[in-house]
């Protein structure tokens, strides 16, 4: 067993269909509210003109990240960033592959530069004037776990606060059958290597094995968890919403989970 990494959760953000932000999600998890209409992610950290033309992946990631940073009270400009996504912007990938198959010379330059996996973190750093290290990672199905691990490592190794944002959108076109992504979901955490009043603590430890498809015991939440790779983070988000102290596992690779000991703030 590897040594534990300990981080404190200073900010939380989330977007899911019918749950437009963390506050709504928290109320739903606590049986204080029901899901509402599906709304466009509110990414008010981005400037209005960027927000209007941003691809869905950028809006989604920025919506969740913006909530987490706002809750943390920290300045986004000072936060190192780790953005994680299994499949990036599948709408753009579908557009690129379809256009390249039919009329390659007509490829849109803007869609091309938005097709890079780091487009959401790129737009985020531009909008927040953030010059810190920023990364965009993937581990297919295991992207949430691998990204969370990367973010926690960066926080502990460099003793700095880190913005972690995981997101995936629904698949489009023939690609959708391969990625099996049926909907959008994003979750974001501001992780600190130092204790903070009111912040939940997470101890991360690597353990062999793969938790695979553990049920959340609720059909709607199971559906959301399986809608895309970021859904693997839903159990952790539920635990944080319920302010529960508990242990859970998230897969980071085929044969490697990260065990999370979550200690609720009291």
């Amino acid at each position: 067993m590897s040594p534990a990494l300990t981080v404190w959760v200073r900010g939380i953000g989330l977007w899911a269909p019918g749950m437009a932000d963390w506050t709504t999600f928290r109320a739903i998890v606590r049986n204080e509210a029901s899901p509402g209409e599906v709304t466009r992610p509110v990414a008010d950290t981005l400037p209005a003109n960027e927000r209007r033309r941003a691809p869905e992946s950028v809006l989604l990631a920025a919506a969740a990240a913006g909530q987490a940073v706002a809750m943390s009270g920290l300045s986004a400009a000072d936060l190192a960033c780790v953005f994680a996504s299994g499949h990036g912007d599948q709408t753009i990938t579908d557009y690129m592959c379809a256009t390249l198959a039919s009329a390659p010379a007509e490829l849109s330059p803007i869609r091309f530069h938005n097709s890079v996996h780091n487009a959401p973190v790129g737009y985020w750093t531009i909008a927040t004037h953030c010059h810190a290290a920023s990364s965009a990672v993937s581990a297919a199905t295991y992207s949430f776990g691998a990204g969370l691990l990367e973010a926690a490592m960066l926080a502990v190794a460099d003793e700095r606060d880190v913005l972690f944002a995981a997101y995936d959108i629904a698949g489009t076109g023939p690609l959708r059958e391969m990625t099996a992504c049926t909907g959008a979901f994003a979750a974001s955490l501001v992780l600190s290597p130092h204790p903070h009043q009111g912040a939940a603590r997470i101890d991360l430890t690597l353990v062999p094995g793969n938790i695979r498809d553990a049920s959340l015991g609720d059909a709607r939440m199971d559906g959301l968890a399986h809608s895309n790779p970021t859904g693997a983070g839903l159990r952790l988000m539920e635990a944080l919403a319920q302010e529960q102290s508990l242990a859970l596992r998230v897969a980071t690779a085929d044969s490697l989970d990260v065990h999370l000991d979550v200690e609720a703030c009291r």
Partner: peptide
Amino acid sequence: PALHTPHSLANFVASLFDLEGPCMTVAT
């Protein structure tokens, strides 16, 4: 499915060597 994701390379390398440690793609 494993072919149509940014992680196909890291997955391939880890699978080739039967490595079971952390496995991640950086795509910046």
